[in-house]
Structures are given as structure tokens and as C-alpha cells.
Computed example of a mutant assay.
Amino acid sequence: MAERTATIASSSGLHARPAKLFVQKVQETGVPVTIAVPGGADLNAGSILSLMGLGATQGTVVTLKAEGDGAEAALDTLAAFLEVDHDAEA
């Protein structure tokens, strides 16, 4: 199983617009991905409800996990996505 950590950069955390964009990125990978905050359960990263329930604010470190063909590349892309402030682009 591939695993990456990323620090949430968006000023609103992983909520609203950044969460929607992230779910779209997860779905584009075609790989099942989970996301977790420290001490939390692995949640479906392709679910907007799961992301909203994480309570991940700016600066929160999350762990992404995936397995299967393309998992390493998918996690590289997703981790890089989380480390950009998408609120600043709006």
C-alpha cells in the first residue's frame, strides 16, 4: 500500500471549494484513496461528506493511502494538490 502525508494549505482548510476540487482529483485518478487525520480513521477521499467530516484546517497534516496500479502516481498528484492554497486562486 502506498502512503503519503500532506499539509493542508488552503486557508479554509479542506472545506467547500478545496474539498470539491480534491474529490474531483481523486475521482480522476481512478484509484481508491483514503484520507485520515492523526489519530483518525481512514475515510474515503472521494467522498465530499468524508472530507467535510475530517475537520482538516489549514496546517493539518493528513495521510493519504491507496493501492493498486497507479497508486504511487495518484498519491503524488493528490498530496501536491493539498499543499497548494486553492482559496488564493479563487
Rank of each mutant, 00 (worst) to 15 (best):
E3Y: 03
E3L: 07
E3R: 12
A6C: 04
A6F: 04
A6K: 09
A6L: 04
T7R: 15
A9Q: 03
S10W: 08
S10V: 14
S12T: 15
S12I: 15
A16G: 08
A16N: 13
R17H: 05
P18R: 11
V23G: 01
V23W: 01
V23E: 01
V23T: 08
Q24N: 12
V26N: 04
Q27Y: 03
Q27T: 14
Q27C: 05
E28Y: 05
T29I: 11
G30E: 08
G30L: 08
V31N: 00
P32S: 12
A36P: 00
A36I: 10
V37D: 00
V37W: 02
P38W: 10
P38Y: 07
P38H: 05
A41P: 02
D42W: 00
D42K: 05
D42N: 04
N44H: 04
N44P: 00
A45N: 04
G46I: 05
S47K: 13
S47R: 14
L49N: 11
L49Q: 12
S50A: 15
G53N: 09
L54H: 09
L54K: 09
T57K: 15
Q58F: 01
T60D: 09
T60W: 06
V61M: 07
V61K: 13
V62S: 05
V62L: 07
V62P: 06
T63W: 01
T63I: 07
K65R: 15
E67D: 14
E67S: 08
G68D: 04
G68I: 10
D69W: 09
A71D: 10
E72A: 08
A74V: 14
D76V: 13
D76H: 03
T77W: 01
T77F: 00
L78W: 06
L78D: 05
A79E: 06
F81K: 07
L82A: 09
V84F: 03
V84G: 01
D85I: 15
D85K: 12
H86V: 12
H86D: 08
E89D: 08
A90T: 15
A90E: 15
A90L: 15
